[in-house]
Design a protein around this nucleic acid. Structure first.
Lengths: 226, 226
DNA sequence: TAAAAAGTGTGATCCAGATCACAAACTTAC
DNA sequence: GTAAGTTTGTGATCTGGATCACACTTTTTA
């Protein structure tokens, strides 16, 4: 399963540029870049964790088992770090991370990760920026989830898949309709009905899990009007 | 309005201990600790921001104007930093921060704040821990908001007020019923009805905005069963 | 301290979307 | 390739909570 060794795989962009300076030593570590297939659980809610996950490629879902079943909080695309909160708090994972696509990732020991943060301000800075972005994303998602109705939320999911996630108007849904329901707080049946409706209105075409956007403007309108 | 000068007011706990060492210089800055009264807007959605806010004391609400009105994302108690995302992203505030209590805060220039992060790993580390905690909080809030029904959500609000926020079974609600609605995604009328119900069942006693918890176990039960 | 504005209580009505109940299609596994 | 499991489609019914409507109370303002 292991594909190759991934030296400094976590140190990218600005931080990476500084690898030549005095701090190089403390930034060096090896981690095994491993690939996992769809469905693999990288982080399991309720379990003790001693690693941060660096997601090199692929898609994951961050989901929480709530009082009434599983809820997908968000879908995250590589690259990025996962499981940071556990690095600091009580180390029991508060959520699960599951691959919803073929995924490449490596596990970085918490201590190594902490040293990295301490020894490299650029790295810390990047992490902070990253988490802040997440924070904004989740705030907006919260507002959308509660203020829009199903049609608008499904339009959003489709646009997000086409846009940030797959970068194409034609893509294969990486999750089931039930999971879409868990992502937008609605039932499997409603998702099915709305998708059928969109298809009937020639806004999208559906064949199995393949979706193609036919009228992007319509989706944008539906998304905007709540 | 200015109460006093607040040297190093942002550098607390571990980071503060290191003030004597070589990095002291870069950590030194003055900021005016100011007090604001209830309703004062510290950060305004849509406006350009060049400051991070350090909240020294008091309570604020973080709220977002969505497609269908204002939604309170969360209520935050001092101490802590506010408005971090704006420090990095496009500098346009994505949300508003409004005092819902008498509040003491100071504004730290973004550049100063960045230097602080760069020059002090302990400080960066604390900030990361802090943001991670927020992240978890907001994830859980998301799940609760969508999986529980009104009774459960109101029970949660009351318990949160009594617990983390005021540390007493008897407190004065810092927000209106309408705002509680905006916090838990429900209407003003429903909040009113549920509070009346709780009072009738002798779970709480209400007089104006004063609330006293009579049967904490009942609230916990209501919260738990969704 | 009176008038205006903001906040609250409570009934009556309505509706988006959940839930139920099956049938059909698609995926795995042996 | 057939049986078992999983995912989807679609009607019929039900319901939590929104919305409307209006009286009452508390707070703010001038």
């Amino acid at each position: 399963m292991i594909r190759n060794e991934c030296r400094h795989c976590s140190v990218k962009s600005k931080a990476a540029k500084k690898l030549k300076d005095a701090e190089t030593e403390s930034l060096s570590f090896n981690c095994a870049l491993t690939s996992f297939k769809k469905g693999h659980v990288l982080i399991k809610q309720g379990m003790l964790s001693t690693n941060v996950v660096y997601l090199r490629s692929g898609l994951i879902k961050l989901h929480i088992e709530g009082p009434y079943g599983d809820q997908i909080v968000r879908i995250v695309k590589a690259p990025g770090y996962l499981g940071l909160p556990t690095t600091f708090g009580d180390k029991i994972n508060q959520y699960s991370i599951t691959a919803i696509d073929e995924v490449e990732a490596c596990f970085i020991d918490i201590t190594t990760f902490r040293n990295l943060l301490y020894s490299n301000p650029d790295f810390s800075y990047e992490i902070i920026i990253d988490i802040c972005r997440n924070e904004l994303e989740i705030y907006n998602r919260c507002v959308n989830r509660s203020q829009k109705q199903i049609r608008g939320k499904i339009a959003d999911v489709i646009l997000e898949m086409a846009g940030p996630i797959y970068d194409s108007d034609s893509f294969t849904l990486p999750i089931s309709q039930e999971e879409i329901g868990n992502l937008i707080d609605s039932s499997r049946e409603s998702v099915s009905r709305i998708l059928a409706e969109f298809e009937k209105d020639k806004i999208i075409s559906v064949s199995g899990k393949k979706i193609e956007i036919k009228k992007r403007e319509s989706l944008l309108m539906i998304s905007a009007k709540g």
